[in-house]
Design a protein around this nucleic acid. Structure first.
Lengths: 200, 200
DNA sequence: GGGCCACTAGACAGACCGGTCTGATCGGAC
DNA sequence: GTCCGATCAGACCGGTCTGTCTAGTGGCCC
């Protein structure tokens, strides 16, 4: 089997850590099929890891779910940041968020917002909701900061409207299988930004 | 126990039919907690109905879920139609859809779009997806027809944009616990409608 | 060489799931 | 009165779930 079997600390040479393989498997399975319908056995089978290792690394299934969502948050954050950093003008930075959305929608296995999907499966006091609130707080503050930089007189209001488009595009991409929703949201966003920042 | 125990056909005097009680219980439990986490036993317990009755009335759990979603669709359809019919002008009819949305968001146990939540829990070939496609097709054609009546030169495009706001408002109401998202969506919708129908 | 520790494989427990089946009850049609 | 069909209550089945536990393995440090 050639199990390298090194834990977390020492940088494993070739194969990823058991912890990393676990997270990668969870990332695929939880996202593609849902956090509830995917059992622990499926995750450890794909990761090629023993069950005890999962429980020693993440405590329980909720811990793994939290790590999965945190990873999703980080991936999205990096993608959006990269797109935003490609531009200088605040207006273009705002619009670039929707370019990042379009990249995500274009991925072959896109299945909607991971946080929206996960929170649909759990009760209000689940750790999922905490991760979701964190994610949505980040999105909102990103839009608010960029709106302020763009000179909007009411950055919170403009941000709320852009979040509306951000969410709506995600729903359309998933439910209507329409990856082009990002472009449409971007077009509408441009008119909202221009209307909010117009000198009058 | 005073079980009236009348089936479907004869109009029961006081108590609703077993079939109706089943649907009402499913409507509450599936919506509030999710279709997967709620078991058959919970539904029949709340409905005060024997398990065999459920299976004789709906075939299996999927049948009950389909009936639950069809009921949700009908409730939404009625609410939106009532709001739209309160107005004469196509522009006001379009905006009235968001009034109906605001009514739904204001309900105490609002937990997001039932179709969005349900489809997050199932695979792509589930009967849930069929009910979801039907629902979304109705929403889209409603917006398209009203946009055409309002004189929009590209009714499909305006409808797609309004669907974006419709979905975004639903997400915000649920995830940000912000029932006022309907008003914001309505405001943005008004500017989009006016921009699309402006003579130039 | 010896101890340590992460890891593997898999049995196991206890709960819950959807769905079937049996047997009894009860109202209404005739 | 008799039959029928809907209903009720609940046992039961096979399967799956999360999580724990035992036992063994193999690389690394000293």
């Amino acid at each position: 089997m050639a199990t390298k079997a090194i834990a977390d600390r020492p940088a494993a040479p070739g194969r990823p850590t058991a912890r990393e393989r676990l997270l990668a498997a969870a990332n695929e399975l939880f996202y593609e099929e849902g956090i509830h319908v995917v059992g622990i056995d499926r995750v450890i089978e794909r990761a090629g890891v023993a069950k005890a290792t999962l429980y020693s690394a993440y405590g329980n299934k909720d811990g793994l779910i939290s790590a999965y969502l945190a990873g999703r948050h980080e991936i999205r954050r990096r993608r959006v940041t990269a797109a935003v950093d490609r531009h200088e003008a605040p207006r273009e930075k705002l619009l670039a968020v929707f370019d990042a959305l379009g990249e995500a929608f274009a991925e072959p296995n896109y299945r909607g917002c991971a946080f929206l999907n996960a929170s649909a499966e759990v009760g209000p006091d689940s750790p999922v909701m905490q991760a979701t609130d964190t994610y949505r707080g980040w999105v909102r503050s990103l839009f608010t900061d960029l709106s302020r930089a763009a000179g909007a007189p009411d950055p919170e209001q403009l941000a709320s409207r852009l979040v509306l488009l951000y969410d709506g595009a995600g729903v359309a991409a998933r439910m209507d299988r329409n990856p082009g929703a990002a472009d449409m949201a971007k077009t509408v966003a441009a008119t909202l930004i221009d209307a909010a920042t117009a000198q009058h």
